[in-house]
Design a binder for these strands. Structure first.
Length: 653
DNA sequence: AATCTGCATGGAGGA
DNA sequence: CCTCCATGCAGATTG
């Protein structure tokens, strides 16, 4: 950590800023980026998509089209991001635009397909998307892309670190200056960076990584609807505070949440911190956090807590619709500026360190805008909030990470469960519906979901056990704790799922998509005629194929009582199971006549052998076996087909 | 039919 | 009078 000038010419903070690590450039070298840039890619849209979530839909920053992260084109997009491209493959503003439409791109897609196949970890984990792309491949990709898109790659820029590093040249790589961030996909994190992952995550980071704008943290823009911004840098801190106490507004007094707050001598609404148009914020939205609460938390966190604003939930906010109406002034002051009605996904951490992603968007309304956070239902339910309760938006400095706290209206006083709480009545919030940091789910190395800042929270504010057992709830595809009442409401659960579907994250469909994708990976085989070229990168040998992979047939492995394993495959004609060598790889269609390993059973007329053993493994009985040739076979094929379709559609894209 | 989604409307409160 | 925002509503979508 030190003081340098951010090398990202488009970065909002081009003044002397904190920095923490460099930005690897394709031709080598490292560009020093400011804290904001550096932290941005940790939580960048595409990082999350590919390496944490690994499935689901995301929205392009530029064109706002949705792209499925499981698709190969999207994968390619992510890789290209490392070279400065920002945007989806559909986006005309991105130098990788139309890549998936070009005939030449088929080669890339084919290579990527192969890379996906190659990277499947032996244990079947969904790691292929999380593995690093080797530099050689990236170089190849880059060359092809450059060849295809010469206009986007002036010769002077290619592979010249000085060009990339030099002054504002970098800006030429940025499709839109106001994007202002370099999105560092995790796919391209170097080994070194991977090693530093924990450190990175322990650093405060911008959860809301989009739309960085020229001034004023966390997401200011130069001019927002005609309002000129103050050019404030790092925020003041907690102690910004109650020097000026507002005259209690009518609304503040009248709202259930705040009226009780007013009864607390310490709970005074404090003027908001810096932000666009903060002076226009109505006092009703001023955070009513006590100094005691703030000091306690600040002390625990080694970070500065900056209360931004709060809002008392209306019936519609807390209702099933899942939309939380944001005060316009607050949204424009503290949230990223958005220019498209669809808005952007916004990550906000709750008091337990769990990260939620909401869709921050707006609707045109009477020549103005109405800002909403969509998909809040799971979070609201997790906090067991209802109309009249208050949610508090705060920020952790440095880093600008958003924290969503809450304060409940309860008989005899308020309960507070924010990261700013005094800790006297932290809710035992269920983790249901939580869009847990996907890395914690997928990363076998351990959960990373608890930021350092939140680890400083008192225990009772953190997750009860810090490691909630993961249950793949097929109904909602999220972690479920021990069942809050809300979760048991089928309608709500359904609503959650569908809402999250809009969020493109962490929903049941993404879970299913991921599983399907993982299953599909099992089916990938190198083309039989393909001969691999061994490439050694960082002491790891990779087989590189010139031909795209083929889809193989699913097999099952059994364990002999005496030890050792056997592989079994089912004939596509007679549905009989045949034993295969362990290393046998089958094509997508395989019949007994293809059983070259056991000539005694290379015909469908030959009965099965050792069936009991196999059935024991499969957990099926004779009756099931009878049906196997019927329904089960069809289902099996259907499942297999779903995996194939997933890949096929990805490849088609 | 239920739910989602985008927009419209009108009351409340501030200027 | 104007802006904001809570909520309603209708068309679209989904199961």
């Amino acid at each position: 950590m030190g003081q340098k000038i951010c090398m990202n010419a488009s970065c909002a903070t081009t003044n002397t800023v904190e920095w923490k690590k460099g930005w690897p450039l394709r031709a080598g070298g490292v560009a020093d980026l400011c804290f904001r840039c550096g932290s941005a890619y940790e939580s960048s849209l595409f990082c999350d998509t590919f390496h944490k979530e690994q499935s689901g839909w995301r929205e392009c920053f530029l064109c706002h089209k949705r792209l499925h992260c499981g698709c190969i084109a999207s994968k390619l997009m992510v890789e290209l991001l490392d070279f400065g491209g920002v945007g989806c493959t559909n986006c005309s503003s991105c130098y990788s635009s139309s890549l998936n439409k070009r005939s030449e791109s088929q080669d890339l897609l084919g290579r990527l397909t192969m890379m996906l196949a190659e990277r499947q970890p032996p244990n079947g984990e969904s790691g292929i998307l999380g593995n690093n792309i080797d530099s050689g491949r990236l170089s190849q990709l880059c060359q092809v892309v450059e060849a295809n898109e010469p206009d986007r790659f002036p010769q002077s820029q290619r592979g010249d670190p000085k060009t990339l590093l030099g002054g504002d040249k970098r800006e030429e790589f940025m499709p839109q200056p106001e994007l202002g961030k370099l999105f560092k996909p995790e796919s391209t994190k170097s080994v070194m960076e991977t090693r530093d992952m924990q450190e990175s995550l322990s650093q405060p980071s911008l959860s809301m990584s989009l739309a960085v704008t020229p001034s004023g943290p966390p997401f200011p823009s130069g001019v927002v609807e005609g309002k000129k911004q103050s050019n404030v840098t790092r925020s003041p801190t907690v102690q910004s505070s109650c020097s000026v106490l507002p005259k209690p507004s009518k609304s503040a007094v009248s709202t259930p949440g705040t009226s009780k707050a007013a009864s607390c001598p310490l709970r005074s609404a404090r003027p908001p911190v810096e932000g666009r148009g903060r002076n226009h914020l109505l006092p009703r939205y001023w955070p009513r956090i006590t100094d005691q609460e703030l000091q306690q938390i600040s002390g625990n966190l080694n970070s500065k807590i900056v209360p931004l604003f709060e809002k008392t939930l209306s019936a519609s906010d807390a209702g099933r619709i899942g939309r939380l109406v944001l005060p316009k002034a607050c949204a424009e002051a503290y949230f990223p500026s958005i220019h498209q009605s669809e808005g952007i996904p916004l990550k906000i951490q709750d008091v337990k360190g769990k990260e939620w992603t909401f869709q921050f968007r707006f609707w045109p309304n009477n020549n103005s805008r109405m800002y909403v956070l969509e998909g809040v239902t799971p979070c609201i339910q997790s906090m067991q909030l209802q109309a009249g309760d208050t949610v508090t938006f705060s920020r952790i400095d440095p880093g600008g990470k958003l924290v969503l706290g809450f304060r409940k209206t309860a008989c005899g006083g308020e309960q507070q469960g924010s990261g700013l709480t005094n800790g006297t009545s932290a809710e035992d919030t269920s983790s249901s519906g939580v869009t847990e940091n996907p890395s914690s789910i997928n990363d076998p190395a351990g959960p990373l979901q608890m930021p350092k800042e939140m680890k400083g929270l008192p225990e009772h504010l953190s997750s009860p056990d810090g490691e909630i057992s993961l249950q793949k709830n097929k109904n909602n595809g999220v972690r479920t704790g021990d069942g809050s009442p809300q979760i048991k409401e089928k309608k709500r659960t359904r609503n959650i799922g569908t809402k999250n579907k809009r969020l493109l994250l962490h929903n049941e469909e993404s879970m299913e998509l991921r599983l399907t994708w993982e299953e599909a990976q099992d089916l990938l085989r190198p083309s039989p005629s393909a001969k691999p070229t061994i490439v050694t990168i960082e002491d790891n040998e990779f087989e590189e194929y010139d031909e795209p992979p083929v889809f193989g047939k699913k097999t099952v492995f059994t364990s002999r009582p005496s030890g050792g394993q056997e592989q079994w495959a089912q004939c596509d004609d007679c549905s009989k199971w045949r034993r295969l060598p362990l290393d046998a790889l089958l094509p997508s269609r395989w019949t007994c006549s293809d059983n070259v390993w056991d000539l005694d059973r290379c015909s469908c007329s030959v009965p099965e052998k050792n069936l009991k053993e196999l059935e024991s493994f499969l957990g099926v009985g004779r009756e099931t076996k009878k049906q196997r040739s019927g329904e089960k076979q069809r289902e099996g094929r259907k499942e297999e087909a779903s995996g194939l379709e997933a890949l096929a559609s990805a490849a088609a894209l």
